[in-house]
Each structure stands twice: as structure tokens, then as C-alpha cells.
Amino acid sequence: MVRLPLTPDEIERGRRLGAVLRRARGDRPMLDTALAAGVSPETLRKIESGRVATPAFSTIAAIAGVLDLSLDEIWARANRPADASLAS
């Protein structure tokens, strides 16, 4: 399967998604969060840093569950313009 290059908007949305998850994790160690979600710490680090702009739904759902976030809230925050997502 050939994967099309991501658009600048998709890349930016991935960065916002990562920022939302990072803020929600707060002081909780990355290792603890990753293990509780059933993902590798490296995967979580890449998502939080925006290096994985389009992570699998199941991965985000698992992380959201550990962080007590609703998927609706994550989606709403990740789709806000960059300046609005930083305000919340």
C-alpha cells in the first residue's frame, strides 16, 4: 500500500494532538502512561512530539482511556487553530 504524503494541515493537526496528550499527561511519567495504554514509550513520545501525525485510532483510544480524556474532546482540541488550542 502506498501512503500519500501528509498535508501541512495534517502535520499541524498531529502536532496539536500530541500537545493535547502531553498536557493531559501532566506530571505522570511517560513510561507509566505508555505501559498502561499498551503502547511503547517510544510510540507515545513520537505522538506527543508530533512525529507521528496520524496515529492509529486504537492507539489514541487507549491513551485517551488512561488519561481520562474523551475522544470527542481530543478531536475538538486537535482540530482547533494553533493559537486556540494553546489557550485551553
Rank of each mutant, 00 (worst) to 15 (best):
A53N: 05
P5W: 00
A56P: 00
A56I: 12
E73P: 00
S58T: 12
D27R: 05
G65L: 11
R25D: 12
P8Y: 04
D27Y: 08
I74P: 01
R77H: 11
S70I: 08
S85M: 13
I60F: 08
N79P: 02
R15F: 13
S40Y: 14
R15P: 01
R22G: 06
P55S: 04
V2E: 03
L69D: 11
T59G: 00
V2Q: 02
V20F: 12
N79S: 11
N79V: 09
A36M: 10
L35T: 13
V20R: 00
P29W: 13
L4M: 12
P55V: 13
G65Q: 09
R25I: 15
P55F: 10
D27Q: 08
R23F: 08
R13Y: 10
A53V: 05
S58H: 12
G26P: 02
V66W: 04
F57R: 05
A84P: 00
A62Y: 15
I74G: 02
A56C: 02
A34K: 08
P29H: 03
T54S: 09
S49G: 11
P29F: 12
G50R: 01
S85I: 14
V39H: 07
L44K: 03
G38F: 14
R15A: 15
A24D: 04
R22N: 13
S88Y: 07
R23C: 03
D83K: 04
V66Y: 06
A84R: 05
V20E: 09
D68N: 06
R3T: 14
R22H: 13
F57V: 15
T7S: 11
G26N: 07
R22P: 10
K46C: 03
R80W: 09
P8F: 05
R15M: 12
P29L: 07
K46V: 05
A82S: 09
A78D: 07
K46S: 06
W75R: 01
S88T: 14
G50C: 08
R25K: 05
A24K: 05
D83P: 00
E12N: 01
G65N: 06
R23K: 08
S85V: 15
L44Q: 03
I11F: 06
R80V: 14
G18P: 02
M30Y: 10
S70K: 01
L21F: 07
S85T: 15
S70N: 08
E42G: 06
V39Q: 09
I63K: 00
A87F: 04
A34E: 14
L35M: 12
R77Y: 10
S49F: 12
A24Q: 09
G14R: 02
T43W: 14
A61K: 07
I60N: 00
A34V: 15
V2H: 01
S70V: 10
I74S: 02
S70G: 09
S40K: 05
S49A: 15
R15Q: 15
N79L: 07
A84S: 07
